[in-house]
């Protein structure tokens, strides 16, 4: 069994802001059913760019639900510019920490928030920002950068960026990407 903090337990036992917002101003989705977790985030945003309401629906484990729940509490009252600065680490910190193999749950929270803001701003996320490793929040751009900086094997890239070192779910995927990048 995982060691969850009391805060995590509180939030998965009685999650806050569960459900759908009717006529939301922004919706963001991260994860998928196939991967074992998905978060759908709904935001209501006023004319001053302030998030006035946030609700979520999550398919996932205890820490996924807790991360989603605390995220809604964190964004309500913030402006879009402020919300953009929220990192997955902050989400985990607000929960008193997450087990290392569960850090990807906080990344899913940040990704859904990013997607929702992009949806509101009507922009597409640039490819380089696509997250490859959810545990250590490593993007395609990060992998490319580590290679530019001298990493020349899969192991070196993984060591440098942390990609594939957490829950290991993405390890083979990371290897493929790294090999492709190295061939360039």
């Amino acid at each position: 069994m995982w060691e969850y903090t009391d805060k995590v337990k509180e939030h998965f036992k009685n999650p806050k802001n569960v459900g759908e917002i009717e006529n939301p101003d922004a919706v963001g989705v991260a994860g998928s059913l196939k991967c074992g977790d998905q978060l759908k985030l709904y935001l209501k945003i006023d004319e001053n760019n302030v998030i006035t309401d946030a609700k979520f629906q999550t398919f996932g484990c205890g820490s996924a639900v807790a991360s989603s729940s605390i995220l809604t509490e964190m964004v309500i009252g913030k402006t879009i510019e402020e919300a953009k600065k929220i990192t997955n680490k902050e989400i985990a910190e607000m929960l008193g920490g997450l087990p290392p193999a569960k850090m990807h749950c906080s990344v899913m929270g940040r990704e859904a928030l990013e997607a929702a803001i992009a949806n509101w701003e009507k922009v597409e996320l640039p490819v380089k920002d696509k997250i490859v490793c959810q545990c250590y929040d490593v993007s395609l751009g990060d992998i490319a950068k580590s290679i530019e900086e001298g990493a020349s094997t899969v192991d070196e890239v993984m060591e440098k960026t942390g990609a594939g070192m957490g829950c290991m779910k993405c390890r083979n995927f990371v290897k493929d990407i790294v090999n492709k990048e190295l061939q360039k």
Binding site: F12, K13, G36, D37, F59, C61, G62, C167, M168, K169
Partner: peptide, 27 residues
């Protein structure tokens, strides 16, 4: 999702298990 089911069952004193995702360190 299975882990959440197990965590809620645990609160009712029911012990069961999920061979699947998230419970055993193997995601």
């Amino acid at each position: 999702e299975g882990e959440l089911i197990l965590l809620y069952l645990n609160d009712l004193g029911i012990c069961a298990s999920s061979g699947s995702a998230c419970t055993t360190g193997d995601l």
